[in-house]
Simulated assay, not measured.
Amino acid sequence: MDILFIFVIGSIFGSFFGLIVDRIPLRKSIIFGRSHCDSCQQLLAYRDLIPIFSQISSGSHCRYCKSKIPYLYVFLEFSSALIFVLAWVNYLKPSQFLLIILSLILSAFDYRQHSFPFVIWFIFALSFILIFPLSPLFYFWLILAVLAEKFNLRVGSGDFLWFFTASFSLTFLN
């Protein structure tokens, strides 16, 4: 029963991540404003907002205008639910959990926008810096990110910023 509860909580977070991916590029509030269909602008009823279940039961179409709902939402909801369950059963360390959640969110932004907002990465990076110890490897990735921003290194600065964050939980020494 605990695992089912954690799965539901994780899917709710995944739904919120989808909202973040939709609204931040449009500079809309992630707190205020009801969810609506992007095609017909119809406000969604509570039954349309049940993570995973609503999209499956509607056949990935809006109940009102029948426009297609991107699979990205159900992917975020299910993936988040699975990640939360894996963390709950101690399969993931806290740093791995945060890194995978960050990677999921940034991947959704990258899929939609071909970039990600710096503020999303910064919030996670700041929490990593405050929670976990620093090492010289972190500075290496930050320097490469700055260089990639200034010069064409054929790798985006966002990739190096992700490596910076990943270096808190990934190690090649163990």
Rank of each mutant, 00 (worst) to 15 (best):
V146T: 10
S169E: 09
F97W: 09
F122D: 00
C65I: 02
F124C: 03
S60E: 05
R34E: 15
L4C: 09
R34V: 13
T165A: 15
A45E: 15
F172L: 15
A145N: 04
I101Y: 04
W88Q: 11
L43G: 08
F5N: 07
T171W: 05
S169K: 07
S58Y: 03
L102A: 09
K66L: 08
P117Y: 03
A166F: 02
I52Q: 07
P25K: 01
R63Y: 01
L49A: 10
W162G: 10
S35W: 08
D48R: 00
I50E: 14
R23N: 09
S167T: 07
P136R: 06
L82T: 10
L106T: 08
S167Y: 01
V119E: 14
D110V: 00
G59K: 00
V146Y: 13
L19E: 12
F168W: 10
I83E: 10
V89C: 01
R63A: 08
Y71P: 04
A87H: 09
L44C: 11
R63I: 02
H36W: 13
F132N: 14
S157G: 04
H61Q: 15
S115I: 02
G10N: 10
T171Q: 15
L173P: 04
I131Q: 13
L72Q: 12
L161K: 06
F97V: 02
L26F: 05
I83H: 01
A145T: 02
I131N: 12
F116T: 03
A125M: 05
L144F: 11
L134S: 15
L104N: 03
R47E: 14
F78P: 10
Q96A: 13
Q41V: 11
Y111T: 07
I83Y: 00
F75S: 14
F75V: 15
